[in-house]
Nucleic acid binder design. Structure first.
Lengths: 217, 217
DNA sequence: CGGGATCCGTTACGATACTG
DNA sequence: CAGTATCGTAACGGATCCCG
Protein backbone atom coordinates (compact mmCIF):
# COMPACT_ATOMS: atom_id res chain seq x y z
CA UNK A 1 0.00 0.00 0.00
CA UNK A 2 0.99 3.57 -0.38
CA UNK A 3 0.84 4.65 3.22
CA UNK A 4 2.72 3.05 6.02
CA UNK A 5 0.98 0.31 7.93
CA UNK A 6 -0.29 1.11 11.38
CA UNK A 7 1.24 -2.20 12.46
CA UNK A 8 -1.30 -2.83 15.19
CA UNK A 9 -2.87 -6.14 16.04
CA UNK A 10 -6.38 -4.80 15.67
CA UNK A 11 -9.04 -5.42 13.07
CA UNK A 12 -9.73 -1.74 12.56
CA UNK A 13 -6.07 -0.99 11.95
CA UNK A 14 -5.77 -3.98 9.61
CA UNK A 15 -8.80 -2.75 7.68
CA UNK A 16 -7.42 0.77 7.41
CA UNK A 17 -4.11 -0.63 6.19
CA UNK A 18 -6.06 -1.92 3.19
CA UNK A 19 -8.73 0.69 2.56
CA UNK A 20 -7.68 3.68 4.66
CA UNK A 21 -5.75 5.59 2.01
CA UNK A 22 -7.24 8.70 0.50
CA UNK A 23 -9.68 7.91 -2.36
CA UNK A 24 -9.63 4.17 -1.74
CA UNK A 25 -13.07 3.88 -0.15
CA UNK A 26 -14.60 6.10 -2.80
CA UNK A 27 -13.13 3.86 -5.49
CA UNK A 28 -14.70 0.88 -3.76
CA UNK A 29 -17.97 2.76 -3.52
CA UNK A 30 -18.00 3.17 -7.29
CA UNK A 31 -17.18 -0.48 -7.85
CA UNK A 32 -20.09 -1.61 -5.67
CA UNK A 33 -22.32 -0.32 -8.49
CA UNK A 34 -20.74 -2.77 -10.90
CA UNK A 35 -17.78 -3.06 -13.23
CA UNK A 36 -16.17 0.23 -14.13
CA UNK A 37 -13.61 1.29 -16.66
CA UNK A 38 -10.63 3.39 -15.71
CA UNK A 39 -12.27 6.41 -17.25
CA UNK A 40 -15.57 5.77 -15.52
CA UNK A 41 -13.78 5.85 -12.21
CA UNK A 42 -11.89 8.98 -13.12
CA UNK A 43 -15.01 10.88 -14.03
CA UNK A 44 -16.84 9.69 -10.91
CA UNK A 45 -13.95 10.86 -8.75
CA UNK A 46 -13.26 14.43 -9.80
CA UNK A 47 -9.94 15.62 -8.50
CA UNK A 48 -8.14 12.29 -8.39
CA UNK A 49 -4.90 12.23 -10.33
CA UNK A 50 -4.70 9.47 -12.90
CA UNK A 51 -1.44 8.12 -11.53
CA UNK A 52 -3.01 7.97 -8.09
CA UNK A 53 -6.00 6.06 -9.40
CA UNK A 54 -3.62 3.62 -11.05
CA UNK A 55 -1.70 3.17 -7.83
CA UNK A 56 -4.83 2.64 -5.75
CA UNK A 57 -6.19 0.06 -8.19
CA UNK A 58 -2.89 -1.81 -8.14
CA UNK A 59 -2.90 -1.81 -4.34
CA UNK A 60 -6.46 -3.09 -4.24
CA UNK A 61 -5.58 -5.79 -6.75
CA UNK A 62 -2.57 -6.81 -4.69
CA UNK A 63 -4.83 -7.16 -1.66
CA UNK A 64 -7.31 -9.25 -3.63
CA UNK A 65 -10.18 -6.80 -3.25
CA UNK A 66 -10.41 -5.76 -6.90
CA UNK A 67 -9.68 -7.57 -10.14
CA UNK A 68 -9.25 -6.59 -13.75
CA UNK A 69 -11.53 -8.22 -16.26
CA UNK A 70 -11.20 -8.17 -20.02
CA UNK A 71 -14.46 -7.66 -21.84
CA UNK A 72 -14.82 -9.63 -25.10
CA UNK A 73 -14.35 -8.12 -28.55
CA UNK A 74 -15.23 -6.06 -30.47
CA UNK A 75 -14.87 -3.31 -27.90
CA UNK A 76 -12.17 -5.21 -26.06
CA UNK A 77 -11.60 -3.15 -23.00
CA UNK A 78 -10.59 -3.82 -19.47
CA UNK A 79 -12.83 -3.12 -16.54
CA UNK A 80 -12.33 -3.24 -12.81
CA UNK A 81 -14.63 -5.16 -10.49
CA UNK A 82 -14.86 -6.16 -6.86
CA UNK A 83 -13.82 -9.67 -5.92
CA UNK A 84 -15.72 -11.67 -3.32
CA UNK A 85 -13.34 -10.32 -0.69
CA UNK A 86 -13.88 -6.83 -2.00
CA UNK A 87 -17.62 -7.08 -1.62
CA UNK A 88 -17.06 -7.51 2.11
CA UNK A 89 -16.42 -3.76 2.24
CA UNK A 90 -20.12 -3.10 1.79
CA UNK A 91 -21.06 -2.87 5.47
CA UNK A 92 -18.26 -0.37 5.95
CA UNK A 93 -19.61 1.81 3.16
CA UNK A 94 -23.12 1.59 4.55
CA UNK A 95 -21.98 2.56 8.02
CA UNK A 96 -20.01 5.49 6.63
CA UNK A 97 -22.96 6.62 4.54
CA UNK A 98 -25.20 6.62 7.59
CA UNK A 99 -22.65 8.45 9.65
CA UNK A 100 -22.12 11.06 6.96
CA UNK A 101 -25.73 11.68 6.06
CA UNK A 102 -26.41 14.40 8.64
CA UNK A 103 -23.44 16.32 7.30
CA UNK A 104 -24.83 16.63 3.81
CA UNK A 105 -26.01 20.17 3.34
CA UNK A 106 -28.68 21.37 0.99
CA UNK A 107 -28.58 19.60 -2.33
CA UNK A 108 -28.36 22.92 -4.13
CA UNK A 109 -24.73 23.66 -3.44
CA UNK A 110 -21.86 23.35 -5.78
CA UNK A 111 -20.73 19.88 -4.79
CA UNK A 112 -20.35 17.12 -7.30
CA UNK A 113 -23.25 14.74 -7.18
CA UNK A 114 -22.12 11.23 -8.14
CA UNK A 115 -24.64 9.69 -10.51
CA UNK A 116 -25.37 6.86 -8.15
CA UNK A 117 -25.48 9.00 -5.01
CA UNK A 118 -29.24 8.68 -4.69
CA UNK A 119 -29.12 4.95 -5.05
CA UNK A 120 -26.15 4.59 -2.71
CA UNK A 121 -27.71 6.86 -0.16
CA UNK A 122 -30.95 4.91 -0.13
CA UNK A 123 -29.11 1.62 0.05
CA UNK A 124 -27.39 2.86 3.17
CA UNK A 125 -30.71 3.70 4.78
CA UNK A 126 -32.18 0.24 4.35
CA UNK A 127 -33.32 -0.97 7.74
CA UNK A 128 -32.72 -4.73 7.88
CA UNK A 129 -35.21 -5.16 10.70
CA UNK A 130 -38.04 -3.45 8.85
CA UNK A 131 -37.13 -5.17 5.58
CA UNK A 132 -37.27 -8.68 6.97
CA UNK A 133 -38.92 -10.87 4.38
CA UNK A 134 -40.10 -7.97 2.23
CA UNK A 135 -40.03 -7.92 -1.58
CA UNK A 136 -40.23 -4.58 -3.35
CA UNK A 137 -39.22 -3.36 -6.78
CA UNK A 138 -38.78 0.37 -7.27
CA UNK A 139 -38.12 2.28 -10.46
CA UNK A 140 -36.67 5.77 -10.21
CA UNK A 141 -36.91 8.29 -13.01
CA UNK A 142 -34.90 11.14 -11.65
CA UNK A 143 -33.69 14.04 -13.80
CA UNK A 144 -34.33 11.90 -16.86
CA UNK A 145 -32.21 9.02 -15.62
CA UNK A 146 -33.70 5.63 -14.86
CA UNK A 147 -32.55 3.61 -11.87
CA UNK A 148 -33.90 0.39 -10.45
CA UNK A 149 -33.75 -0.77 -6.88
CA UNK A 150 -34.95 -4.16 -5.80
CA UNK A 151 -35.39 -5.56 -2.31
CA UNK A 152 -35.78 -9.32 -2.33
CA UNK A 153 -36.43 -11.16 0.91
CA UNK A 154 -35.30 -8.11 2.83
CA UNK A 155 -31.99 -7.60 1.03
CA UNK A 156 -30.88 -5.44 -1.83
CA UNK A 157 -30.64 -7.49 -5.01
CA UNK A 158 -29.60 -6.97 -8.59
CA UNK A 159 -32.75 -5.45 -10.04
CA UNK A 160 -34.79 -7.40 -12.55
CA UNK A 161 -35.66 -4.71 -15.08
CA UNK A 162 -37.99 -6.94 -17.03
CA UNK A 163 -40.46 -7.27 -14.19
CA UNK A 164 -43.06 -4.71 -13.23
CA UNK A 165 -42.13 -2.15 -10.58
CA UNK A 166 -44.21 -1.98 -7.42
CA UNK A 167 -43.36 1.68 -7.01
CA UNK A 168 -42.30 4.42 -9.41
CA UNK A 169 -40.56 7.53 -8.13
CA UNK A 170 -40.35 10.14 -10.87
CA UNK A 171 -39.24 13.75 -10.93
CA UNK A 172 -36.37 15.85 -9.66
CA UNK A 173 -33.57 14.12 -7.77
CA UNK A 174 -33.25 17.18 -5.57
CA UNK A 175 -36.85 16.85 -4.49
CA UNK A 176 -36.23 13.31 -3.28
CA UNK A 177 -33.19 14.51 -1.38
CA UNK A 178 -35.17 17.33 0.21
CA UNK A 179 -37.87 14.88 1.20
CA UNK A 180 -35.28 12.79 3.00
CA UNK A 181 -33.90 15.88 4.66
CA UNK A 182 -37.25 16.49 6.29
CA UNK A 183 -39.06 18.72 3.81
CA UNK A 184 -42.84 18.81 3.89
CA UNK A 185 -44.06 16.56 1.03
CA UNK A 186 -46.67 19.16 0.14
CA UNK A 187 -43.97 21.77 -0.42
CA UNK A 188 -42.46 19.76 -3.23
CA UNK A 189 -45.42 20.47 -5.49
CA UNK A 190 -45.22 18.45 -8.66
CA UNK A 191 -41.46 18.07 -8.60
CA UNK A 192 -41.80 14.49 -7.40
CA UNK A 193 -44.44 11.96 -8.27
CA UNK A 194 -44.72 8.65 -6.46
CA UNK A 195 -46.89 6.00 -8.02
CA UNK A 196 -47.82 2.67 -6.50
CA UNK A 197 -50.24 0.94 -4.19
CA UNK A 198 -50.70 2.25 -0.70
CA UNK A 199 -49.01 -0.91 0.60
CA UNK A 200 -45.96 -0.39 -1.61
CA UNK A 201 -45.62 3.24 -0.51
CA UNK A 202 -45.87 2.20 3.11
CA UNK A 203 -43.29 -0.54 2.66
CA UNK A 204 -40.90 1.91 1.04
CA UNK A 205 -41.21 4.39 3.90
CA UNK A 206 -40.60 1.65 6.44
CA UNK A 207 -37.70 -0.05 4.69
CA UNK A 208 -35.92 3.18 3.89
CA UNK A 209 -36.74 5.35 6.90
CA UNK A 210 -35.74 9.01 6.80
CA UNK A 211 -32.79 9.41 9.14
CA UNK A 212 -32.69 11.55 12.26
CA UNK A 213 -30.69 14.55 11.16
CA UNK A 214 -30.81 16.39 14.46
CA UNK A 215 -27.38 15.14 15.48
CA UNK A 216 -25.21 17.04 13.04
CA UNK A 217 -22.70 19.35 14.68
CA UNK B 1 -9.69 19.45 8.33
CA UNK B 2 -6.19 18.73 7.25
CA UNK B 3 -6.91 17.07 3.96
CA UNK B 4 -8.94 18.58 1.21
CA UNK B 5 -12.63 17.82 1.10
CA UNK B 6 -13.86 15.41 -1.53
CA UNK B 7 -16.66 17.92 -2.19
CA UNK B 8 -19.13 15.27 -3.26
CA UNK B 9 -22.80 15.19 -2.39
CA UNK B 10 -22.58 11.72 -0.91
CA UNK B 11 -22.81 10.48 2.63
CA UNK B 12 -19.68 8.38 2.33
CA UNK B 13 -17.66 11.32 1.06
CA UNK B 14 -19.08 13.56 3.77
CA UNK B 15 -18.14 10.99 6.39
CA UNK B 16 -14.61 10.65 5.04
CA UNK B 17 -14.25 14.43 5.03
CA UNK B 18 -14.66 14.21 8.80
CA UNK B 19 -12.99 10.95 9.79
CA UNK B 20 -11.05 9.88 6.71
CA UNK B 21 -7.68 11.38 7.58
CA UNK B 22 -4.85 9.16 8.63
CA UNK B 23 -5.03 8.26 12.38
CA UNK B 24 -8.46 9.83 12.88
CA UNK B 25 -10.43 6.59 13.08
CA UNK B 26 -7.87 5.03 15.39
CA UNK B 27 -8.15 8.05 17.69
CA UNK B 28 -11.91 7.58 17.73
CA UNK B 29 -11.42 3.88 18.41
CA UNK B 30 -9.44 4.73 21.54
CA UNK B 31 -12.03 7.22 22.69
CA UNK B 32 -14.82 4.66 22.41
CA UNK B 33 -13.20 2.98 25.41
CA UNK B 34 -13.74 6.11 27.48
CA UNK B 35 -12.07 9.41 28.28
CA UNK B 36 -8.40 9.53 27.41
CA UNK B 37 -5.62 11.95 28.16
CA UNK B 38 -3.34 13.25 25.44
CA UNK B 39 -0.61 10.95 26.64
CA UNK B 40 -2.90 7.94 26.77
CA UNK B 41 -3.74 8.48 23.13
CA UNK B 42 -0.11 8.93 22.19
CA UNK B 43 0.94 5.70 23.81
CA UNK B 44 -1.97 3.80 22.27
CA UNK B 45 -1.06 5.12 18.83
CA UNK B 46 2.65 4.41 18.42
CA UNK B 47 4.08 6.33 15.51
CA UNK B 48 1.79 9.32 15.59
CA UNK B 49 3.58 12.64 15.87
CA UNK B 50 2.43 14.78 18.74
CA UNK B 51 1.62 17.74 16.54
CA UNK B 52 -0.46 15.50 14.35
CA UNK B 53 -2.41 14.20 17.33
CA UNK B 54 -3.04 17.78 18.40
CA UNK B 55 -4.24 18.72 14.95
CA UNK B 56 -6.55 15.73 14.66
CA UNK B 57 -8.09 16.39 18.04
CA UNK B 58 -8.71 20.04 17.11
CA UNK B 59 -10.33 18.95 13.86
CA UNK B 60 -12.55 16.48 15.68
CA UNK B 61 -13.49 19.15 18.21
CA UNK B 62 -14.33 21.58 15.43
CA UNK B 63 -16.62 18.97 13.92
CA UNK B 64 -18.29 18.36 17.27
CA UNK B 65 -17.26 14.72 17.50
CA UNK B 66 -14.86 15.09 20.43
CA UNK B 67 -14.75 17.44 23.39
CA UNK B 68 -12.21 18.37 26.01
CA UNK B 69 -13.17 17.90 29.62
CA UNK B 70 -11.38 19.20 32.65
CA UNK B 71 -11.16 16.74 35.50
CA UNK B 72 -11.48 18.23 38.99
CA UNK B 73 -8.54 18.91 41.28
CA UNK B 74 -6.25 17.76 42.76
CA UNK B 75 -4.92 16.13 39.61
CA UNK B 76 -6.59 18.69 37.40
CA UNK B 77 -5.96 17.43 33.94
CA UNK B 78 -7.75 17.58 30.67
CA UNK B 79 -9.15 14.54 28.97
CA UNK B 80 -10.72 13.97 25.60
CA UNK B 81 -14.07 12.24 25.15
CA UNK B 82 -16.57 11.48 22.44
CA UNK B 83 -19.64 13.67 22.18
CA UNK B 84 -23.04 12.23 21.34
CA UNK B 85 -22.31 12.89 17.67
CA UNK B 86 -18.95 11.23 18.04
CA UNK B 87 -20.47 8.06 19.40
CA UNK B 88 -22.28 7.69 16.09
CA UNK B 89 -18.96 6.51 14.64
CA UNK B 90 -19.35 3.21 16.46
CA UNK B 91 -21.04 1.25 13.65
CA UNK B 92 -18.26 2.37 11.31
CA UNK B 93 -15.62 1.04 13.67
CA UNK B 94 -17.49 -2.23 14.06
CA UNK B 95 -17.82 -2.68 10.32
CA UNK B 96 -14.13 -1.95 9.84
CA UNK B 97 -13.18 -4.37 12.59
CA UNK B 98 -15.18 -7.12 10.95
CA UNK B 99 -13.74 -6.35 7.57
CA UNK B 100 -10.20 -6.33 8.90
CA UNK B 101 -10.41 -9.42 11.07
CA UNK B 102 -9.41 -11.94 8.40
CA UNK B 103 -6.29 -9.92 7.72
CA UNK B 104 -4.96 -10.26 11.23
CA UNK B 105 -2.10 -12.70 11.15
CA UNK B 106 -0.91 -14.87 13.97
CA UNK B 107 -0.94 -13.06 17.26
CA UNK B 108 2.71 -13.84 17.79
CA UNK B 109 4.15 -11.29 15.42
CA UNK B 110 5.78 -8.06 16.31
CA UNK B 111 2.79 -5.81 15.93
CA UNK B 112 1.64 -3.52 18.69
CA UNK B 113 -1.33 -4.95 20.51
CA UNK B 114 -3.53 -2.17 21.81
CA UNK B 115 -4.59 -2.95 25.37
CA UNK B 116 -8.24 -2.97 24.45
CA UNK B 117 -7.82 -4.89 21.21
CA UNK B 118 -9.38 -8.05 22.61
CA UNK B 119 -12.35 -6.17 23.94
CA UNK B 120 -12.76 -4.15 20.77
CA UNK B 121 -12.42 -7.19 18.60
CA UNK B 122 -15.06 -9.08 20.51
CA UNK B 123 -17.38 -6.10 20.50
CA UNK B 124 -17.14 -6.07 16.73
CA UNK B 125 -18.12 -9.70 16.56
CA UNK B 126 -21.34 -9.32 18.53
CA UNK B 127 -24.17 -10.69 16.45
CA UNK B 128 -27.23 -8.54 17.09
CA UNK B 129 -29.58 -11.26 15.85
CA UNK B 130 -28.19 -13.90 18.18
CA UNK B 131 -27.97 -11.46 21.06
CA UNK B 132 -31.60 -10.39 20.92
CA UNK B 133 -32.85 -10.10 24.48
CA UNK B 134 -29.83 -11.79 26.02
CA UNK B 135 -28.13 -10.70 29.25
CA UNK B 136 -24.60 -11.85 29.92
CA UNK B 137 -21.78 -10.58 32.10
CA UNK B 138 -18.26 -11.74 31.28
CA UNK B 139 -15.08 -11.12 33.22
CA UNK B 140 -11.77 -11.52 31.40
CA UNK B 141 -8.52 -12.06 33.22
CA UNK B 142 -6.05 -12.01 30.39
CA UNK B 143 -2.31 -11.64 30.90
CA UNK B 144 -3.00 -10.40 34.41
CA UNK B 145 -5.33 -7.66 33.24
CA UNK B 146 -8.99 -7.63 34.18
CA UNK B 147 -11.64 -6.60 31.68
CA UNK B 148 -15.42 -6.71 31.95
CA UNK B 149 -17.87 -7.06 29.14
CA UNK B 150 -21.58 -6.86 29.67
CA UNK B 151 -24.39 -7.59 27.24
CA UNK B 152 -27.70 -6.24 28.47
CA UNK B 153 -30.86 -6.87 26.47
CA UNK B 154 -28.73 -7.81 23.48
CA UNK B 155 -26.53 -4.71 23.49
CA UNK B 156 -23.11 -3.92 24.87
CA UNK B 157 -23.42 -1.93 28.06
CA UNK B 158 -21.13 -0.27 30.56
CA UNK B 159 -20.18 -3.23 32.73
CA UNK B 160 -21.40 -3.39 36.28
CA UNK B 161 -18.33 -4.64 38.08
CA UNK B 162 -20.08 -5.10 41.38
CA UNK B 163 -22.34 -7.83 40.07
CA UNK B 164 -21.38 -11.45 39.65
CA UNK B 165 -20.02 -12.55 36.28
CA UNK B 166 -21.87 -15.27 34.40
CA UNK B 167 -18.67 -16.28 32.65
CA UNK B 168 -15.00 -15.93 33.50
CA UNK B 169 -12.36 -16.21 30.79
CA UNK B 170 -8.91 -16.43 32.32
CA UNK B 171 -5.46 -17.06 30.90
CA UNK B 172 -3.35 -15.93 27.98
CA UNK B 173 -4.79 -13.31 25.65
CA UNK B 174 -3.01 -15.01 22.76
CA UNK B 175 -4.87 -18.24 23.47
CA UNK B 176 -8.21 -16.47 23.16
CA UNK B 177 -7.08 -14.95 19.88
CA UNK B 178 -5.96 -18.34 18.59
CA UNK B 179 -9.30 -19.81 19.57
CA UNK B 180 -11.05 -17.18 17.50
CA UNK B 181 -8.74 -17.84 14.61
CA UNK B 182 -9.94 -21.42 14.48
CA UNK B 183 -7.53 -23.25 16.76
CA UNK B 184 -8.65 -26.54 18.29
CA UNK B 185 -9.69 -25.77 21.90
CA UNK B 186 -7.91 -28.91 23.05
CA UNK B 187 -4.62 -27.62 21.61
CA UNK B 188 -4.66 -24.64 23.96
CA UNK B 189 -4.00 -26.84 26.98
CA UNK B 190 -4.31 -24.87 30.18
CA UNK B 191 -3.49 -21.53 28.62
CA UNK B 192 -7.15 -20.58 28.75
CA UNK B 193 -9.73 -21.45 31.34
CA UNK B 194 -13.41 -20.72 30.82
CA UNK B 195 -15.65 -20.94 33.84
CA UNK B 196 -19.42 -20.69 33.84
CA UNK B 197 -22.61 -22.59 33.40
CA UNK B 198 -23.14 -24.55 30.23
CA UNK B 199 -25.87 -22.07 29.27
CA UNK B 200 -23.54 -19.10 29.71
CA UNK B 201 -20.81 -20.71 27.60
CA UNK B 202 -23.33 -21.49 24.89
CA UNK B 203 -24.68 -17.93 24.95
CA UNK B 204 -21.15 -16.54 24.64
CA UNK B 205 -20.38 -18.71 21.61
CA UNK B 206 -23.61 -17.66 19.94
CA UNK B 207 -23.43 -13.95 20.69
CA UNK B 208 -19.78 -13.66 19.70
CA UNK B 209 -19.47 -16.16 16.86
CA UNK B 210 -16.02 -16.93 15.49
CA UNK B 211 -15.80 -15.26 12.09
CA UNK B 212 -15.31 -16.99 8.79
CA UNK B 213 -11.64 -16.34 8.01
CA UNK B 214 -11.55 -18.18 4.71
CA UNK B 215 -12.01 -14.99 2.74
CA UNK B 216 -8.69 -13.31 3.40
CA UNK B 217 -6.63 -12.63 0.31
C1' DC C 1 5.37 14.46 34.03
C1' DG C 2 1.47 16.00 31.10
C1' DG C 3 0.38 18.73 27.07
C1' DG C 4 1.72 20.48 23.75
C1' DA C 5 4.75 23.73 19.93
C1' DT C 6 8.63 24.05 16.55
C1' DC C 7 11.71 22.51 13.16
C1' DC C 8 13.10 19.67 9.32
C1' DG C 9 13.89 15.67 6.22
C1' DT C 10 10.94 12.41 3.74
C1' DT C 11 6.86 10.83 1.57
C1' DA C 12 2.45 11.21 -0.59
C1' DC C 13 -0.58 13.92 -3.20
C1' DG C 14 -2.36 16.99 -7.09
C1' DA C 15 -1.87 19.09 -11.55
C1' DT C 16 -0.38 18.89 -15.96
C1' DA C 17 1.81 16.95 -19.91
C1' DC C 18 2.70 13.16 -22.62
C1' DT C 19 2.35 8.22 -24.85
C1' DG C 20 0.90 3.49 -26.84
C1' DC D 1 -9.01 4.92 -23.71
C1' DA D 2 -5.78 3.68 -20.31
C1' DG D 3 -2.54 4.74 -18.40
C1' DT D 4 3.00 6.73 -17.51
C1' DA D 5 6.23 10.62 -16.40
C1' DT D 6 7.44 14.73 -14.21
C1' DC D 7 7.39 18.10 -10.68
C1' DG D 8 5.87 21.58 -7.19
C1' DT D 9 3.34 21.51 -2.93
C1' DA D 10 1.20 19.76 1.16
C1' DA D 11 1.11 16.30 4.65
C1' DC D 12 3.48 13.20 7.53
C1' DG D 13 7.13 11.26 10.89
C1' DG D 14 10.80 11.88 14.15
C1' DA D 15 13.24 14.61 17.20
C1' DT D 16 13.75 18.29 20.12
C1' DC D 17 12.40 21.89 23.01
C1' DC D 18 9.21 24.50 25.98
C1' DC D 19 6.09 25.60 29.81
C1' DG D 20 3.07 24.86 33.92
Amino acid sequence: MANKSYAQYCGIAAALDRVGDRWTLLILRELTFGEQRFTDLRSALPGIASNLLTERLRDLEADGLVEQRELPAPAARTVYALTASGRRINPVLRALAQFGLPYLGDPGDRKVRPRQAIFGGLAALLDPEAARGVDLRVRFELDGEELWLEVRDGRLARPDRTARADLVVAGAANALVELYRGADPASLGDRLEITGTRAARKAFREIFPAPDLSIAG
